[in-house]
Amino acid sequence: MKIKADTSVCIGAGMCALTAPEVFDQSEEDGTVVLLQESPPETLEDASRRAVTLCPSGALSLE
C-alpha cells in the first residue's frame, strides 16, 4: 500500500493524525498533513485506510 498526500487541498482537520498517528502528523506551521511513512507496514494498513476515508478534504489517496 502506498499513500499520497496533497497538502494543497489539506485543511488541517487532523483526522489523519488522530486515526493513524504512526503514519500521519501535522506541520507545526500550517497544520497540513505530514506523511511520516509512505508505505506503512501491514499492521498499520487498516488504520491508514480508515484515515484516508475520514479525511474531509480529499487530500489523501491510496495507490
Binding site: 485543511i11 488541517g12 482537520a13 487532523g14 493524525a17 488522530l18 498517528p21 502528523d25 501535522q26 506541520s27 507545526e28 506551521e29 500550517d30 497544520g31 497540513t32
Partner: peptide, 12 residues
C-alpha cells in the same frame, strides 16, 4: 484564513 489557523489546532 483557515491556513493561518490550522497550525494552532493540530492534534499535537
Amino acid at each position: 484564513y483557515r491556513r493561518l489557523l490550522t497550525g494552532q489546532f493540530t492534534v499535537r
